[in-house]
Write a protein that binds this DNA or RNA. Structure first.
Lengths: 339, 339
DNA sequence: CTGCTATGGGTTATCGATAACCTAAACTTG
DNA sequence: CAAGTTTAGGTTATCGATAACCCATAGCAG
């Protein structure tokens, strides 16, 4: 529309101050709504800022004030439907308070988490929300320790010293399913999963499931494939392997809903009656989002609320309040039509 | 373990330089691998940095050099399974090149996008990846215009001047479904959707669908509820309303897969045979991720690749290469068992 | 041996905002 | 009405890194 004569130079606070006819400090105080400034002066500065389209440079601001409103969230993966909800919950609390969230993906690799952490710390965030219950590198733990940035951990626990942990009760999740299977009169329960050496929370559920059954004198068949991703396709593959190796299996507890749905898909394809011949249960509650006919029995995790709780804990911490070091969300079994 | 005597002070480049016995500038050059530095000096600095656990302060670095490696990605929502994949694709390209991505959610609100943009620009990002095909505020457009930050737009087009757009061919998506319905001998096709005034891409698909059918002399019944979210529940509600108001309907094109699955869920519940009595089609391809028995016919969008293409365009742009102003990913109809 | 260019490294100023402190006028209050 | 306090605003120094420039010494050709 107009000529492109604007020099690519960005408007600074000094220019705003000059246009408003005040000192730079005064302009700064107006922009931050601090100090004591008279009505007319406030107005003049605001107007000047608007007129010039001033956007503060937070790099400079944060550098000087040694405070920032960046909160870094580090997750295993975002296209995992679990964490999408969690992030939404986090944002719903953080955004209104003026924080801005930076999200990093680690792909469940501890080296990647370490790199990620280094990168985000270099921006001097106000706080961190990390995912616990995953194997964390020695270096990363060290870095967290020495950096002393307010940190909340979600999902699961870990050895690193953090200020608080918010997550579901994984042990209960495992034993709830075990008990449910027993009530249904299951005699040959099984488990399928993957990457348990990295996903310590899943390992915890698995152990709770196994030990709850053992205490009733029932042993299980487990297939754990550490080299496969925790996804739908893996569910299909492992279900096939399981039913071939242990045809007597009449109930399968799956690491998560994605694997559960994959298993179901293979079972249906092969003509197994579910739940009459084989029952299937998962974990997360994500399978219900888009269910049409099959509603996988699963343990629901209130993901959005989890995000909100974590974010609230973090802002409380940043506001100097005391927070609970651990909050566990209760595990809730939701009954579908697969058990 | 050890005493907590470390003063909360962070290690600076000056300290690294002192320990290494060189000037600060030399240390800076070593850290950035620029300038001419001898082997031994390089080694000394690196060692000192490691020993102290030095993490550069990018706020300071970026402030001075007026360059940053932040790329901001602004999306309608992340728990929408579409964008999770897109972000993964983006990260897969950007992370290895040393960029770090900020992710903002707008909830499809243009005011929220504007706020987000202001916040993100205050960090002086190297580039932006925005979502097009949504209503954008006048202020936001203005800001983008005057800020001149390399910007790639994904998903759809918009009036704002950006450097490139990468997205699926929405028009084709609509007409492909229309043609498919015709081949199936459909006589009373319908459409259900929501928030079309905000989701301009969906509106484009809808228009293409309608006009393709009109050109064959077929008119459609459409139910568009602008106040409802574009989700599963909405699909159920709108399907019910549609079948009540227009019981002759024998095919439904849904705004997206989530609504499509919701519609299917209601149709199954009410005993409608799918696809014999009513056919259903959606858009995205996300419904197949967790499919068990029902595979919704849909138009697939290669979401991960879309993210990769957008990120590649952006880095090319940042490297000074010329890029295509528009890249359209071909719409591909995938045949499920609902049509 | 003179003049020229690399090599290796140091000096100084600066990015844009804000902390910390200061000052003058206006306003209380006993 | 003198002395203390508040109000409104300004001055100066600084956050931590890097751009831009400078200066030795070494190497090398003529």
């Amino acid at each position: 529309m107009s000529e492109q004569n604007t020099p690519s130079k960005r408007v600074t606070l000094a220019e705003v101050a000059k246009l408003a006819g005040v000192s730079q400090m005064t302009a700064s105080k107006v922009m931050r709504e601090t100090g004591s400034i008279s009505g007319p002066t406030h107005e003049k500065v605001k107007q000047a800022a608007n007129q010039l389209g001033y956007v503060p440079n937070r790099l400079a601001g944060s550098l000087r004030s040694k405070s920032s409103d960046i909160v870094a969230v580090v997750l295993p993966s975002i296209n995992d439907s679990i964490f999408g909800d969690v992030v939404s919950g986090i944002n719903s609390v953080l955004r209104p308070k003026g924080y801005i969230t930076f999200i990093g993906e680690t792909q469940l690799e501890s080296q990647s988490e370490e790199d990620m952490l280094r990168t985000v710390l270099s921006l001097h965030p106000a706080g961190l929300i990390l995912t616990g219950g995953i194997a964390r590198s020695e270096n990363a733990t060290q870095m967290l320790q020495s950096w002393r940035c307010p940190t909340i951990q979600i999902w699961g626990d870990s050895a690193s010293r953090v200020d608080g942990t918010v997550g579901p009760n994984h042990k209960d999740a495992g034993s709830l399913v075990a008990n449910h299977f027993c009530e249904r009169g299951i005699t040959a329960p099984a488990y399928i999963g993957a990457e348990l050496q990295k996903d310590l929370c899943a390992a915890e559920r698995f152990e709770a499931y196994r030990s709850a059954l053992r205490s009733r004198g029932i042993s299980i068949n487990a297939i754990v494939e550490d080299a496969m991703p925790r996804q739908w396709e893996t569910g299909r593959v492992l279900a096939e392997r399981l039913m071939r190796d242990h045809p007597e299996t009449d109930a399968i507890y799956c690491l998560n809903d994605a694997i559960g749905l994959g298993a179901l898909s293979w079972l249906h394809q092969e003509g197994f009656d579910v739940p009459e011949r084989v029952a299937v249960a998962g974990f997360n509650g994500t399978s219900w989002i888009n269910a049409v006919r099959t509603r996988l029995t699963t343990v629901n995790v209130p993901r959005y609320e989890l995000g909100q709780m974590a974010a609230t804990s973090l802002t409380d911490l940043l506001d100097g309040k005391r927070i609970a070091s651990t909050s566990q969300l209760p595990a809730e079994l939701i009954y579908g039509n697969t058990t």
